[in-house]
Amino acid sequence: MERAELAGWLRLSLTPGIGDGAARRLLAAFGLPEGVFAQPHAALREVVSSAQAEALLQPPVGLQTQIDQTWQWLHTTDNGVSRRVVTLGDASYPTSLLEMADPPLMLYVVGAGGFDLTQLGHSIAVVGSRNPTPQGATNARSFARALGEAGLPVVSGLALGVDGAAHQGALDAAGDAPRLATVAVVGTGLDRVYPARHRDLAHRITLQGLIVSELPLGTPPLTQNFPKRNRLIAGLARGTLVVEAALQSGSLITARLTSEQGKEVFAIPGSIHSPQSRGCHALIRQGAKLVESVSDILEELPPLGAPAAAAPSAGNGHPAATTEDPLLEALGFDPVSLDALSARTGWSAAALQAKMLELELEGHISRLPGGLFQRAAST
């Protein structure tokens, strides 16, 4: 993105009184932000109110400082970590957010350079209490790990409690594999980490995932921004798993937004005596799916092996490109662990992991819960 283009998007997003809805109308009428700011008051008045048109004619206070700060942030190098701004007009803007009523104009993204938000088609949001029970924290981490082992990125909010445990579980599942493990959607500018005790976790996420915010750099952790953040968690993920939640909690907001977007809501039941279970029980009464194992989630989602379906058939119901690979023949068509596969082939664990990752990226195998792998069958 050129500096002038960045300046236009920042000015539009920071102009007082211009929300996302008015900004989208302006973009639809005049094209890119530069086109919006080239219009006279009369033309602007045809799309927005007179007060909004007047505000658009004056650069917002502090705009130049924000442009300088954001430009410098974008061009700061950090050991392979990429910093970018994704705007409503970018090809890399996630289509799931475009389907929302109020998609943000800009997304600030930091993370590994090979990842982007269009890779979240099969992701699951894992949310819950900031003060979970010990079992709740364990459930969050173990479910997130199982989801990761099944090939699903985990989306959460980097908060204390369930969010942090979910990110950790997803990172556990990824190990050293170069794949998108988890996405953290935060309620501050990306030049700060909140809560501060998650600084190390945030650093791990930038190496094997992404951290996302719609808020400009310098934005502190303001209470009103976190419910807005929740709509992005719901919007990015294919469904939402609530691990533990009180009756009045942000997790229930995320669940409601997920349901309103026509996506699946999952909830883990708990003790009838625990306040942290009441939110999940309420969701289940309202139609959320009761979850006891990760398979309860996976059976509600489309199959992950879709890329293999495009391969030409060899006439035996399986992709022709995979029939001559000796590792795939050793794998067979039943779920198998790496230890069992090592015994069958005599390959080292390191060699197996490298080859299995290659086959997974090509769509020939799928990861299953429990550290198992299975050959992808043709559909």
Rank of each mutant, 00 (worst) to 15 (best):
P221W: 11
A255W: 06
Q276S: 15
R229K: 00
E260H: 04
Q276V: 14
L217R: 05
P220G: 04
L236T: 06
P227V: 06
P269Q: 08
A246E: 13
R231M: 03
I268W: 08
A246R: 13
N230G: 07
S274T: 08
S259T: 13
S277V: 06
E264L: 13
G218F: 01
T240P: 08
G218M: 06
I233R: 02
R231W: 08
H273Y: 15
G218C: 06
L215Q: 13
Q224Y: 15
G218P: 05
A234Y: 04
Q276T: 15
G262W: 03
P216G: 12
Q248A: 09
A234W: 10
L247I: 12
L232K: 09
Q224D: 15
Q276Y: 12
G262Q: 05
L241W: 05
T223P: 14
V265D: 06
A245I: 02
R278P: 06
I272F: 12
F226Q: 02
Q276H: 14
Q261C: 03
P220A: 10
P220E: 08
L236K: 09
I253S: 11
P216I: 02
P227R: 00
S251M: 02
A255G: 01
A246F: 02
T254R: 01
G239L: 05
R278W: 14
I268H: 07
G239I: 06
S271M: 08
E260R: 11
L232I: 11
E260Y: 03
G250D: 02
K228V: 15
S251D: 09
L222Y: 13
E214P: 10
V243G: 04
